[in-house]
């Protein structure tokens, strides 16, 4: 088990998916923050600087497009964004917001861990 290597911010409106990702990444030793939509996530990035953001696209209140735009306008450095979406246009959505990577749902937990490891070393 690794030591806590950084914070991952998981933004998804589905409670179960947030839980599964949190448990998996926490088991791997990452500190995880979660938010059910972009608006809550923006509040969180003010308080802590996550090293990686896992972002769902279709969410109520503030969706992935609006979040990424607002986040990139914040001063300072920005964490890489991995798009997590069940939409058929997963790669299109990822390119629309110039995300660093994309993981279509449903995903394999090993894939998720590998991807997170790649961005947080």
């Amino acid at each position: 088990m690794k030591s806590s290597t950084g914070e991952v911010l998981v933004i998804d409106d589905d409670d179960t998916i947030r839980e599964v990702i949190s448990l998996t990444l926490e088991d791997e030793g990452y500190a995880v923050l979660t938010a059910p939509n972009g608006a809550v996530a923006l509040e969180l990035v003010y308080q802590s600087q996550p090293k990686l953001i896992l972002l769902d696209m279709r969410m109520p209140v503030m969706d992935g497009w609006a979040f990424s735009e607002a986040y990139r306008q914040l001063p300072g450095t920005h964490a890489p964004i991995i798009v997590l979406t069940a939409a058929t246009d997963a790669t299109l959505f990822a390119s629309q917001i110039q995300a660093d990577s994309c993981l279509p749902k449903p995903f394999d937990l090993n894939q998720l861990i590998e991807l997170v490891e790649r961005y947080i070393s």
């Binding site: 589905d14 179960t16 998916i17 839980e19 599964v20 990702i21 998996t24 069940a86 749902k105 449903p106 995903f107 937990l109």
Partner: peptide, 10 residues
């Protein structure tokens, strides 16, 4: 796919 993701994940 959304419930499937949670189901498979757990």
């Amino acid at each position: 796919k959304t419930p499937l993701t949670g189901l498979r994940g757990y």
